[in-house]
Design a protein around this nucleic acid. Structure first.
Lengths: 204, 204
DNA sequence: TCTCGTGGTTACGCTTCCGTAGGTTACGGG
DNA sequence: CCCGTAACCTACGGAAGCGTAACCACGAGA
């Protein structure tokens, strides 16, 4: 039955793991402390003992996952040519999705406060936007457009990651290479001013 | 106080509108029938009278929004050059985000069943993937990569839409033009085989 | 063997909601 | 003037689910 008594540290670590699984499956609101306790073969107050409540456990889980993604991506963009950095970041993110699908699910789901994937991506987006802005300035492009491209790239990568988890799991490096290629070629060949779009046929 | 008695049709239509707002703010689980009823200046059983329950109202709201998005995009891609179609679809989607932010929020949030944005995008993704596949075949490219590019494009557009709602609301046509430009240029200049990515520094 | 701390448990109060049963007001036609 | 029907309400049953109070078990040292 393995209903041995664990030390506080062991139990805590186990609860974090179980909690991540349950939060990934059901989201923050949908997850119940009882289910987490039950899956850990333990009763509810233990969870309160260790984390003070649902939100406390959730905070720990999210924090750990954020840390994991950030450090992984940071390492990838720390050196190399611009193109290598773009490709490295893409691959790093997609590898996280592959290796930690539960963590990715937790971060992607709706969250109570201002944590989670949304805020992470907002920050990454702002940083990428800044990098683009300086590059754009050098090349004589409109710097005000830089954030748009940054957001577009992030959306590209994250959505592909989401898609990968839900469909046939192809080779992630292959996918990363294709996505990087699309992004890089798009950026390299940007016109100084984008072409005007056809007006929709609604009014005028 | 405007607490007049409405006809069934009027009340129904009002409840759909109020429901959309509340579902947009709180999501399906977070929304309560009581709050919807309260905001409609009506008591709870009225909602059950008209829609049979929370899920019934939700289904109607989602159905209407799906219809709106699909018809808008369909119109945009029905004619013109490939590039115009790409730009038209992008603009149509972003215009929906702009004009119906509540509807977009409802569709984007987590949902109980298999409805909502996720399934919509999955379908759109499959269709775009098919178009790309035939184009790729003509041009002698690897057709197996087509879905990747389709997903990447969809992620790009939807994430930019999301970002737009949360930040300074710039001119949507301008944004659509930039996004289209990035996508189009990326696609036009795709290499036959993407460059290999640098391996991450982990193993081997 | 007593006792004391660590790692548990059962049982409950309280709130929030969904969904429903049964009663109440206004209004138009005979 | 009266009655039926369409629109609406108050009030409740019951299920989750969070968080807590209060009580057990068991092993190690005095």
């Amino acid at each position: 039955m393995a209903d041995k008594r664990l030390t506080a540290a062991e139990r805590r670590s186990q609860l974090i793991s179980v909690g991540r699984t349950v939060f990934a499956e059901r989201g923050y609101d949908g997850a119940s402390v009882e289910e987490i306790a039950e899956r850990a073969q333990v009763s509810k107050p233990i969870v309160y003992e260790h984390f003070g409540g649902k939100e406390g456990l959730y905070a720990v889980v999210v924090d750990r996952e954020m840390e994991a993604v950030i450090s992984s991506i940071s390492a990838a963009i720390s050196h190399g040519s611009p193109r290598d950095r773009l490709g490295g970041a893409t691959l790093a993110f997609l590898n996280y999705v592959k290796d930690q699908p539960e963590g990715f699910a937790v971060l992607s789901r709706d969250v109570p406060a201002k944590v989670g994937m949304a805020s992470l991506l907002a920050e990454v987006g702002a940083q990428v936007g800044d990098v683009f802005a300086s590059e754009f300035k050098r090349a004589g492009y409109d710097t005000k457009a830089a954030p748009i491209y940054a957001q577009a790239l992030i959306g590209m990568v994250t959505y592909v990651g989401q898609w990968w988890t839900e469909n046939q799991k192809r080779d992630i490096e292959d996918i990363a290479a294709h996505v990087t290629s699309l992004a890089w070629m798009g950026l390299r060949h940007l016109p100084r001013k984008p072409a005007r779009l056809p007006r929709p046929a609604s009014d005028d």
